[in-house]
Design a protein around this nucleic acid. Structure first.
Length: 751
RNA sequence: GGGCAAGUGGCGGAAUGGUAUACGCGGUAGUCUCAAAAACUACUAGCCGCAAGGCUGUGAGGGUUCGACUCCCUCUUUGCCCACCA
């Protein structure tokens, strides 16, 4: 074989990346025969690609490349989740327009993405902050408005009375507004909602779903939806929801939430003060401070079971948003009620657990409708016009997109930034033609990510959010990889959108992804989450400079099980680099020999192992079996057949070095990445000689080597086993009660 | 308080009812070298032993089994997510 120089990744990797791009090696075919949609959660363009991005995309790429070699037309797109708060904050801080900041980051990150050496086909991409994308956000919103799924409603929010705006939890510091320092209160604020609760039942996962999603996700979502069946009981003018009507004879008082109508109507100044006090607590504070507070309203209602008058109290431990916002307190059966009763000296009466109150069977859900209004600039404008005559008027579909104006003062002013742009804001009502105003709010960015993967399929389609014909060919997603932080938000919203799309006839399936896989987290070398402030960030560009992209890819595969959380180890990657160097050097030692039967057994077992592991996202064990095979090859003569097979198995992990070595031997060869995954010859999976474990009473005492052909002959194995000196020692003078023989594995003498 | 996942060498981890610690890192000793680095070779769970071998050992305790890291029960610790949801 040819003499080659030392392994320098920088001489190999950029070269092949260029050739692949030039040859269009990874272009997705227009008419796929056997499609495989490989989807990774789209990244936020935060500035630079970090190790987490590398991990997600490198491992997904290994999987995709394996699928491709196994005969699939793999669809592997990527885009950017480009709207959102960080851009706006960065803009304010660095005095750069959010769009410019975002687009610059996208440019940088797209270049960095290419250094990973993935097979992503960038012809299929979407950037959510561009009108070509968010136009269809507006279209979907209008469809939802038409169906009553998008509606204007009220919800308790953190409200700054000075800035006149809703605040996110992270913008409240010690109960004060981050901008103006005034005290934040809880207020019912009108905003846009999506009626996801209409879909609560269909979003609940069945025991055995048809799609392969982790239990963690299914259970998490089911708990979040939180369906509970109970009863609505009338206590005079207050209705109460309970899951335990049989305890209602023990209900000695009622508690209503501070926002409850009944509480709001109380005239007493003390009650008014309590309600005001409670409204000052943010949701966070309510969660943190669990000591019970409350006040008596002075009113009584009748318990329909006991016929006794019971007092009505107000307390913020009752949530306005769940059930009816009022509870019957059964201190005998409920810990929280008991705590309250003890604090305020209320009676605690035993319940028979046999009460049968009258009431209506009711189902309640923990799931709330999804608030999608943001009083922010950097998002999709809501395509609605407010007209004094006609009320809420949807913008006609033909007028879409309502473009987000570029020159807007997006610094905090106490109203949505778009409301400051008079020219944009003032329009004629599409219905009556009179003066009207646009909705100045923007959509939550989770709206974008709920359906972006449909857009990938036909990113230039201009007659709808996606080309139904193309979606029919490529969707549903075959595997969706992402992080566990999206169990409750993003993936639930995505499922919701798919159910809506099905309802309006856009798609024919119920679930958008056939399989969901959740990746782990790479910690800094010190075992903490990587962060600039801790100074433990491992910069992928630097590591690539030192070891090459192939080594980083392999190390990310090898360092831990896919779903695990483990620290980056600077030492361990040098072991991977050593592994690659040994493969490089082995190419000089390939000889014109034929592999013997044990060589072929080793080879075919490895083909099987690596293939199975790549199918199941078990990257770490796939790499270790390749290492074992290399160790095996290193101490014998290696044939071309073995070496080429090795390169093919390694190709999904380390696409550059394998391509280089493949071409060293045959300059005219096609790309190794156009090759098929080696075929397993099952006759070689069976070993000729087997090691049988000999146990006495389940303890290992010896092993025997036997020919495969003898396996069925238990008597022979038994005789062989009894001949072992170390076994005889234990069997001597003992009666054998039982012999257990597991074919090809072990024989156990029970004495 | 609830849900989910996990606990195996000095470290990352492998083994899902059948040889516990594969593979890699780190460590020790050696070869090569004037020397070092690199590379290569051997050893590397603990205890006893010159060795052959033996005993102990997968968070703790119990159970099922010829046999348990693996299955069941009780407890415990850690991580992640959710949480005054009636």
């Amino acid at each position: 074989m040819k003499k080659i120089g030392k392994y320098f990744p920088k001489d190999v990797e950029p070269k092949w990346q260029e050739i692949w791009a030039k040859d269009g090696l990874y272009k997705f075919p227009k008419n796929p025969k056997k499609k495989y949609y490989n989807l990774v959660e789209l990244p936020y363009p935060s500035g630079d690609l970090h190790m987490g991005h590398w991990f997600n995309f490198a491992t997904a790429d290994v999987h995709a490349r394996y699928k491709r070699m196994s005969g699939f037309d793999v669809f592997f797109p990527n885009g950017f989740d480009a709207f959102g708060l960080p851009a706006e904050n960065a803009a304010i801080k660095h005095n750069i327009h959010p769009k410019d900041w975002t687009m610059k980051n996208i440019e940088t990150m797209t270049l960095q993405f290419k250094t990973i050496g993935t097979m992503i086909d960038w012809d299929y991409t979407t950037i959510t902050c561009l009108p070509e994308f968010y136009r269809w956000n507006q279209w979907i919103f209008l469809k939802m408005f038409e169906k009553g799924i998008a509606y204007r409603g009220k919800a308790l929010s953190n409200w700054c009375p000075v800035d006149q705006t809703v605040l996110a939890n992270e913008h409240i510091e010690a109960g004060k507004c981050w901008r103006c320092g005034s005290e934040v209160i809880q207020k019912e604020v009108e905003q846009w909602f999506l009626k996801i609760t209409d879909y609560a039942d269909s979003l609940i996962w069945p025991e055995n779903p048809k799609v392969d999603w982790p239990k963690e996700v299914r259970e998490g979502q089911n708990n979040w939806i939180g369906k509970s069946e109970g009863m609505l009981i009338d206590f005079g003018e207050i209705g109460v929801f309970t899951t335990r009507p049989e305890t209602s004879d023990g209900a000695t008082f009622l508690v209503v939430a501070p926002e409850h109508k009944f509480a709001q109507a109380i005239e007493s100044q003390e009650v008014k003060d309590y309600i005001k006090q409670a409204s000052k607590k943010t949701e966070m504070e309510r969660k943190e401070d669990r000591t019970k507070s409350g006040i008596f309203t002075g009113k009584y209602v009748k318990n329909p079971v006991t016929n006794k008058d019971i007092p009505v109290w107000v307390s913020d431990y009752v949530l306005a948003g769940y059930g009816t916002g009022a509870i019957m307190a059964v201190p005998f059966a409920d810990e929280r009620d008991k705590e309250f009763a003890e604090k305020f000296n209320l009676p605690i009466v035993e319940t028979s657990f046999k009460a049968k109150p009258e009431g209506k069977k009711t189902v309640n859900y923990h799931l709330r409708d999804w608030s999608i209004s943001r009083q922010r600039y950097w998002g999709t404008p809501v395509p609605i016009v407010y007209c004094a005559e006609c009320g809420l008027v949807p913008v006609p579909m033909a007028d879409l997109p309502i473009e987000l104006p570029y020159n807007v003062d997006y610094t905090p002013k106490g109203k949505p930034p778009l409301a400051t742009d008079e020219e944009w804001l003032n329009v004629k009502c599409p219905k009556c033609g009179h003066d009207a105003k646009r909705d100045a709010e923007t959509l939550d960015t989770f709206f974008d990510s709920a359906w972006y993967y449909y857009r990938y399929v036909s990113p230039n389609f201009d007659k709808g959010p996606f080309d139904e014909k193309e979606v029919g060919k490529i969707m549903p997603v075959d595997v969706y990889v992402g992080g566990s932080e999206h169990i409750l938000g993003h993936t639930l919203y995505a499922r919701f959108f798919t159910k809506f799309f099905k309802e309006i006839g856009l798609v024919s399936f119920d679930e958008f992804a056939l399989k969901r896989v959740q990746h782990g987290v790479i910690l800094g070398p010190d075992g903490n989450r990587m962060s600039k402030s801790k100074g433990n960030v491992v910069n992928p560009d630097k590591v690539v400079k030192e070891y090459g992209a192939d080594a980083v890819r392999l190390y990310l595969c090898f360092m831990m099980p896919y779903e695990a959380t483990a620290p980056w180890s600077t030492g361990a990657i040098s072991g991977i680099y050593r592994f690659l160097k040994r493969i490089w050097e082995l190419s000089e030692k390939v000889e014109t020999v034929h592999p013997n039967v044990s060589d072929l057994t080793m080879m075919h077992k490895t083909i099987k192992k690596v293939g199975d592991d790549l199918n199941n996202f078990h990257f770490n064990t796939a790499v270790s079996s390749l290492m074992s095979w290399l160790n095996y090859l290193s101490v014998k003569q290696t044939s071309k057949e073995e070496y080429d097979t090795f390169l093919k198995l390694l190709a999904p992990f380390a696409p550059h070095i394998t391509e280089e070595l493949y071409h060293l031997n045959d300059l005219s060869a096609n790309s190794i990445h156009l090759d098929n995954w080696p075929t397993i010859q099952s006759k070689y999976l069976i070993e000729e000689e087997l090691r049988i474990v000999v146990q006495v009473n389940g303890r290992l005492r010896d092993t025997i080597i036997t020919q495969n052909t003898n396996l069925k002959n238990q008597n022979l194995i038994e005789e062989e086993a009894k001949k072992c000196v170390n076994v005889q020692k234990y069997l001597e003078g003992q009666a054998i009660k039982k012999v257990i023989y597991v074919e090809g594995k072990l024989i156990n003498f029970v004495i």
